[in-house]
Each structure stands twice: as structure tokens, then as C-alpha cells.
Nucleic acid binder design. Structure first.
Lengths: 229, 229
DNA sequence: TTACTTAGTGTAAAAAATACACACTATATT
DNA sequence: AATATAGTGTGTATTTTTTACACTAAGTAA
């Protein structure tokens, strides 16, 4: 019902749950707030949707402003609108998640002033979060758990070239359980979305593993058939 | 980012895709608009979120106001926020779906004045819809297609007592394909969420089928294990 | 009683998922 | 040069799940 457009005191925002993987741990990006309410608390990065932005554009902008990153696979997953979720008024927020490979070269750009600092914190040891952000995070984790079983989002967490062991490691962290090495390899290879490279891992003090690359073209063909891990 | 609460000219609404099943066809509830823009067009029923409502409450209220129905399984599934989706201003809308058993006793209550009339129209033959409502509907259908494979939402479309053939019929309509009768029955019974009744179908001019009831208690136990059709 | 219409049932074959253990290889250490 | 170390990489047998497929049983209507 949209023919009446009253002037309402409500605000619409986007909050992002950025999952990052540094090769070892799964982390999320949090900011330490510099203003009331919840001054000094950790919170999810978020911002208000601009008047001329689509939702996806807005989410992309917010991610960019906070991290300097572009071109990240990102998706909305739930709207949170409890009337009391924000102590200062009605704020409906749409949650997005993104998956990011951390480490090495790419550092987080300095971010806007509403935060003291931003940090990647391991999901195994999160602080108390501002607002209802714990709930938003919980639902986000749940979401990617489901999604990783059917869509190739795991590759977003890995460098372009990766070993099968690293890939399995990501699955184990997200799903929160051990997987059988032989079965995992059999299955993931059988989907035919991996390209085996002639290259080997470098700098390890044991047998070097073969490197693989995710083959987007093959995946595009496969779409429709859902894959499942 | 929520510490600043500017006064914005944006409106937040909810639109509902109500899927109804009358025993034969899958239908959705549409209203014929009585006001500009899109006067005389068919549109999804929707409304603006009230200042003191949670999103789910708001959706429930809207459904109630438009149909008189309560206690319906209903879930948000996507937010649409293209800046140009509404010709008169910025309207971000959150889409919900609901599944409803049609027919017999329960009639739609007269609804508010912004619509000339409301009608259940078969999804196989929909008119052009106002705004981006075709997109909203498409995404909703996609959503329940996925969901019906894993969660027992099909039962919401059926009367309390139903036959296995009716249940299969619902699956076929939603999924848009034929299913094998024996395999379907084998599978659905194996989940153990159906209770076979001592009763038979009445008023048919052929062999009467056994009636079943969905057993919510058994389903609750089973939750966690996803079921799949 | 017969014709009609839908209900209800089983099995074999193929495909997918699971469980499981050891030899290989590159490097570091002595 | 020999050895220890740590992770790589592979195959098979078993179980479970999925698929394909066709006839008899029961009730109603004429």
C-alpha cells in the first residue's frame, strides 16, 4: 500500500556482517563506537541508506567507506525492525553479509570518525555487541552456514589460488565440524568448478600441495543444479 | 551506523504475497487499486509499517486488515529498495509471504478503501502488476519453492485433514513439476510427521482416500535435521 | 453387474554418502 | 647422508537414498 506517502520519523539503515578468513581463523569486522549510545562498545559497521541509492549500492558504498574494498560478493539476508532496537528512535536496519579474504597486502583503510577503531575479531571470542548486533550476527552466521552448502561462497574467503586443504578448512570453520578429507575432495572435485593448476604451494616445510583456482565459467554453467556439500 | 538520526523523507512499507490453495489451483491475493499512481492496476496488498510495531507484527496486522485471517505462518523474505520503484518518492518495502488454505467457510473480510476490490487470482494467469510487484511476486515464488523442500509449509495450504494425493498436488503446483506417486508417499511418510486418521474422505464418487493430519509435535522433535523433498 | 475412477502398494537398479588407513614427498634437523 | 616430521594424496567396500516403473483394490454410479 503505497499511494500515501506520509512523513515519518523513521530511519532506514544497513548493517554489515563481514566475515573474514586469514588462513587460520574466521573473523568478523567490528568497530568500537565513539559516540552515545553504546559509546565504547563494539558494533557492526553500518550506515544510513542514502536517498538515491539502491540497497545493494548502499551496502557496497558502506563496505567501501569502511574497508576500502570493492567487488565483494554481498547479500542482504534479514531486516531487523524491533521498535525498541535503537534507544533514540525507530531504526529499521537491513543486514548484509560479505565474505572477505584477509591478510597480506590489503589493509583496512582508515574509516570515518564515528568509530574509534575497526578490528577483525575471531568469532570464537566476540565481545558484547551494541544494540541487537549479536542477534544480527547470529542470524548472519546461520545464513552462511546454509549457503555454503549450496553455493560457492567459500571461495570468496580464500586467495585466488588455494589448496584443497585450505578450502576444506574454510568449510570446517563455517560449518563448525570436521569433514572427511577423502570424501570432501571427491565431492568438491566432482562438481567440476575447480581448476587444477600446474603450480605448487611455496614456503612450506613439508610436501607442497597442488594449487587450485575456482572456475567461474564452469560454475555459471552448473547453476540451476544446486550443489551441496 | 546509528548514532545520528536525521529526518528523512523515506517510507518503509510491507508488501505481502499471499499464496492460497483452493484444492485445485495455486492463487495469490491481489487488490485492484483505486488511486493514483497505478489506478485500476492490480497490486500486492501492502501497507506502511506503524511507528510502534515490530516488522512481524506489522505484517500480521496488514494481513489481518486485508483478509481477517490470523495465526498464519508468515515470513519476511526480501527488501526491495530501488530508488525509483515508487514514482512518488522513496519507498523501501519488505516483502512477506504467507500460505493460506482457501475456500468454504472462511471468506475475505471487506478491506480498506484504497482498493476497489481484492481477489484471488491463479498464478498461471496473472495480470500486469503495479510498481515492481511482479518482481516481488517472482522472488516470493522462488522462495517458497526452495522452502517447501525443507520445511513443512505445504500443510499451511491444506485443510487440517487432507489426503496424500492432495498433499502431492500442492507440491506439484509449487514446484511446477510432476512427482512420482509411490516415491512421494514413501518419502513423506518416512519423515513421520503425518498422522494417519481412521477417517476417510467423503463425498467423492470413487474410492475414498484415507485422511491424514500434520503432526506438529513430531515435527518439532525432528527439527534440526532438515527434511527434503 | 459392470464400468469407471482414483487409492494404494513393492522391488530392482542406480546413484550418492559414508567410513576407513596407509604410502608418498618435500623440507628441516642431526 | 640419514632420519624425523608434517601434511599430501589416494581407493574400496558398505550403507543409504533416489529413481523408475505397473498393477490390484475399493468405492461409486449407471
Amino acid at each position: 500500500m503505497e499511494q500515501i506517502l506520509p512523513h515519518l520519523d523513521s530511519v532506514f539503515s544497513i548493517d554489515c556482517v563481514l566475515f573474514g578468513f586469514d588462513g587460520k581463523e574466521l573473523k568478523i569486522l567490528l568497530i568500537e563506537r565513539n559516540e552515545e549510545p553504546f559509546k565504547d562498545w563494539w558494533a557492526l559497521p553500518g550506515n544510513i541508506v542514502g536517498p538515491d541509492e539502491s540497497l545493494d549500492q548502499s551496502a557496497a558504498r558502506i563496505l567501501y567507506e569502511l574497508t576500502g574494498l570493492r567487488g565483494i560478493y554481498m547479500e542482504q539476508y534479514y531486516a531487523f525492525g524491533d521498535p525498541n532496537r535503537h534507544p533514540q528512535g525507530r531504526v529499521i536496519t537491513l543486514a548484509y553479509y560479505a565474505l572477505i579474504r584477509l591478510g597480506g597486502d590489503k589493509e583496512l583503510r582508515p574509516i570515518s570518525t564515528y568509530a574509534k577503531r575497526a578490528n577483525w575479531l575471531p568469532i570464537t571470542d566476540l565481545p558484547k555487541l551494541a544494540f541487537d548486533h549479536q542477534k544480527i550476527y547470529d542470524k548472519g552466521l546461520e545464513k552462511i552456514k546454509r549457503r555454503i552448502k549450496h553455493q560457492p561462497i567459500a571461495f570468496e574467503l580464500l586467495p585466488e589460488k588455494f589448496t584443497l586443504t585450505q578450502l576444506q578448512h574454510v568449510y570446517e570453520l563455517v560449518l563448525g565440524k570436521k569433514l572427511d578429507k577423502r570424501n570432501f575432495r571427491k565431492k568438491i572435485v566432482s562438481f567440476g568448478v575447480l581448476k587444477e593448476l600446474d603450480e605448487k604451494q611455496k614456503g612450506v616445510s613439508y610436501r607442497a600441495a597442488t594449487l587450485y583456482r575456482f572456475d567461474k565459467r564452469k560454475y555459471a554453467k552448473l547453476f540451476g543444479k544446486e550443489i551441496s556439500f
